[in-house]
Computed example of a mutant assay.
Amino acid sequence: MENIPESSSRGTKRRRDEDSDAGNTSSLEDDLTFTDTLVALRIMRAQFPHVHKWCGDACFQSSVEPFILKSQLYSIVKDRTQVDRELESLRRDKVLRVFKLNTGQDDHAIMFLDDYLNQIDHVVKRMEEKKIGECEAFGWFKTHVLDSKLEPGINHQELCSLLSLGGKVKDSHISLLINAGILTRQLIDPNMYWFAIPNIGSLLKGLVQGRKEIISLLSRHRYKEMMLASLEKKRLRMSPLDIRFLLRDLIGSGHLKTDQTPTGLIIRVSKD
């Protein structure tokens, strides 16, 4: 089992094992339990659904680097205290970042720092192609803000102070970061921002819709349960995310429960 990496400098490439058994062909039941948070994160990163398919009447293509939901970690690393402790250590060591999601629940996404920096680079490239000015703000953000502020949020004064280490900050710089999806304003306090993952909006919509569809599907069955082997074969109509991604989320958040039987794993809706 790998040890958690020691602290490293910004931008340093960290090795990520793309385990040969981490493909999308195995059943969820085969890798439902791990004892190491970093190993679980790496495997789920490799299994992240790179979506490009029809969903309803529209073709959906994901342009988001792989991320993992905290609820998914809770579904496969049974010690939640351990998960929280190891996530905090990995966050402090700048291996990953944790993001608060605006899905109406206490949802958090986890993304390896290298992937997040790549995600920002994609945004910068798109902005430059559109000839949008003041893109220097992205460089200031990566160099001074991300390296210093490891928490999920930041206040306006601190943001401006850190950005000013790169150059003279204007309101338009902040607006550019917000419009690019890198920052979102907190609803309770407009002087506070959440760090955000650009281009994640469509996937979050698919997450919410997929949750509802799976719960609805199970609720139509007797005892509100199905064998996992049968459930995994279902095709979702309302979400581009694959069913394993959503099942891990629903199990970890407590909306679904699992029971081992002689014939395999049963998934059932949790009682209210």
Score class of each variant (00 low, 15 high):
residue 87 L to V: 08
residue 78 K to A: 15
residue 166 G to V: 01
residue 172 S to E: 11
residue 153 G to I: 07
residue 21 D to R: 14
residue 140 W to T: 00
residue 234 K to C: 14
residue 251 I to Q: 00
residue 160 C to G: 08
residue 254 G to V: 00
residue 88 E to A: 11
residue 42 R to E: 15
residue 156 H to I: 05
residue 162 L to C: 04
residue 121 D to A: 15
residue 132 I to M: 07
residue 258 T to L: 10
residue 178 I to F: 00
residue 219 S to H: 05
residue 130 K to C: 11
residue 215 I to Y: 04
residue 236 L to Q: 07
residue 153 G to P: 03
residue 96 L to I: 06
residue 117 L to D: 00
residue 15 R to F: 14
residue 132 I to A: 09
residue 225 E to Y: 06
residue 259 D to M: 14
residue 76 I to D: 08
residue 174 I to K: 04
residue 78 K to N: 15
residue 199 N to E: 09
residue 269 V to A: 05
residue 135 C to P: 02
residue 17 D to E: 13
residue 67 F to C: 07
residue 239 S to K: 03
residue 175 S to P: 02
residue 55 C to A: 10
residue 96 L to M: 05
residue 111 M to L: 10
residue 134 E to D: 15
residue 268 R to K: 14
residue 211 R to A: 04
residue 181 G to C: 05
residue 222 R to A: 12
residue 184 T to W: 03
residue 225 E to H: 13
residue 103 T to R: 03
residue 72 Q to P: 01
residue 250 L to V: 00
residue 68 I to V: 15
residue 32 L to Q: 09
residue 43 I to K: 15
residue 117 L to R: 01
residue 187 L to G: 05
residue 219 S to Q: 09
residue 167 G to L: 05
residue 57 D to Y: 07
residue 103 T to N: 02
residue 236 L to E: 10
residue 40 A to I: 04
residue 218 L to V: 04
residue 246 L to V: 00
residue 112 F to G: 00
residue 185 R to E: 07
residue 228 L to I: 06
residue 125 K to F: 06
residue 239 S to R: 02
residue 129 E to F: 07
residue 179 N to M: 09
residue 16 R to S: 12
residue 244 R to E: 11
residue 181 G to D: 11
residue 262 P to C: 01
residue 138 F to Q: 01
residue 231 L to F: 04
residue 31 D to F: 11
residue 235 R to A: 14
residue 65 E to Y: 01
residue 82 Q to N: 13
residue 106 D to Q: 15
residue 135 C to D: 10
residue 194 W to S: 06
residue 120 I to Y: 05
residue 25 T to Y: 12
residue 87 L to P: 03
residue 127 M to L: 15
residue 37 T to L: 05
residue 211 R to C: 06
residue 113 L to K: 05
residue 72 Q to V: 02
residue 20 S to T: 15
residue 15 R to L: 13
residue 188 I to E: 08
residue 40 A to M: 07
residue 203 L to R: 03
residue 208 V to F: 02
residue 239 S to I: 00
residue 99 F to R: 01
residue 85 R to Q: 10
